[in-house]
C-alpha cells in the first residue's frame, strides 16, 4: 500500500509528541522506525494506524473504494471495520495470560470480516495466515504456553488474518532471543506487505530494513536507506552516542559499532 505521512502531529498532555512528520515509506517493503525512548514511535504508529486522529497533517492511504485510481483518503477517516481490513497493528506487549488457543488468537484477526452473527466470509483465512506465519504447527496449542518467539509469530499470523495492505509493528523483537529476532525480521521483510516496524536495535534495522525513519523528540530527524541515514553524526545528535559505522563484510549493510556516550554538551 502506498502510504504518505504528511506533516502529522499530535499532542498528548499538551506536549507535541509527534510534530510535523513527513514520510513516504516504500511500498511493499520493511521500513524501520527508529529513535530513542520517548521519541514518539508508538504514537506515530497509532497515528498511521488511524487509531489516533492527527491534530495536524494527515496520513494518506489509497482510497479502498477506488482501487486503481490514484485517489487517497486520510486513514483515520476510514470506517473502522473497513480500515481494519487494510491496516493491522501489533502492540508492543501482548498479554501472555489470555486463555485462548493459538487458532482462536489468529481468528481474532478475522473480526473485521465477521457478520453480526459471527460468521466469517472466508473459512480458510485463519489457516492461510497460520501457514504464512509458519505457525500452523502451533494451531492447537494454548496461547499461554508459547515461547516469546512463538507468541510473536502467532501475533503476526493474527495480523495477517486481517489481510492487511499495511502492517504496523511496535517493537516486534522485544523479549526475543537473537535467533528469533533474525528469523522474525527476515520473515516480515519477505512478506511483501508495506510494513512499518518500530525497532530498538539499530543493527537489526540496518540489516533488514529497506528504509528507515529516525524520530527525535517527535520530529523526523532523518529518513532514507539505512546506509545513508545511520551516520556517526546522526547517532550523536539523536542518541547521544559515539559510534563507528562499518560495512558488513558479507551483506554489505551498515554495522554500527558503539564506542561510548557522547560528552555532555558544554561540559
Amino acid at each position: 500500500m502506498e502510504l504518505r505521512i504528511e506533516g502529522v502531529g499530535t499532542r498528548l498532555g499538551g506536549r507535541w509528541v509527534v510534530d510535523g512528520v513527513d514520510a513516504t515509506p516504500p511500498d511493499g517493503a520493511l521500513t524501520g522506525l527508529l529513535g530513542p525512548n520517548g521519541a514518539g514511535k508508538t504514537t506515530l504508529l497509532r497515528l498511521v494506524a488511524g487509531l489516533l486522529p492527527p491534530e495536524r497533517g494527515a496520513v494518506l492511504v489509497p482510497d479502498p473504494d477506488a482501487p486503481g485510481a490514484r485517489a487517497t483518503v486520510p486513514v483515520h477517516a476510514l470506517p473502522r471495520r473497513r480500515r481494519a481490513r487494510h491496516v493491522a497493528l501489533l502492540e508492543q506487549e501482548s498479554n501472555a495470560t489470555v486463555p485462548l488457543s493459538v487458532r482462536e488468537v489468529v481468528a481474532l484477526g478475522r473480526i473485521p470480516y465477521r457478520s453480526l452473527w459471527g460468521t466469517d466470509s472466508d473459512d480458510g483465512a485463519v489457516d492461510r495466515a497460520l501457514a504464512a506465519a509458519s505457525a500452523a504447527h502451533l494451531a492447537d496449542r494454548a496461547w499461554s504456553t508459547l515461547s516469546g518467539g512463538e507468541r510473536q509469530r502467532v501475533q503476526i499470523a493474527r495480523a495477517l488474518a486481517q489481510e492487511p495492505d499495511l502492517l504496523l509493528l511496535d517493537e516486534p523483537t522485544n523479549h526475543l532471543d537473537v535467533s528469533a529476532q533474525l528469523s522474525l525480521l527476515a520473515f516480515v521483510r519477505d512478506l511483501g506487505v508495506t510494513t512499518v516496524a518500530a525497532l530498538h536495535d539499530l543493527n537489526l534495522a540496518a540489516a533488514f530494513c529497506t528504509h528507515v525513519l529516525v524520530l527525535s523528540q517527535g520530529r523526523l530527524a532523518a529518513a532514507g536507506a539505512p546506509a545513508d541515514v545511520l551516520t556517526p553524526t546522526l547517532l550523536r545528535e539523536v542518541y547521544g552516542v559515539e559510534a563507528e559505522v562499518l560495512v558488513h563484510p558479507t551483506t554489505g549493510r551498515p554495522v554500527i559499532a558503539l564506542t561510548g556516550r557522547s560528552p555532555e554538551e558544554g561540559a
Partner: peptide
Amino acid sequence: VAAATRLDAFAFGDTSAAALGID
C-alpha cells in the same frame, strides 16, 4: 450475544481491539 464478536476483540486490550475495527 450479537455483540459477542466485539467482546472477543478485547482479549488483548483496548488498542488491539481498536486495531481490529472496534470503537
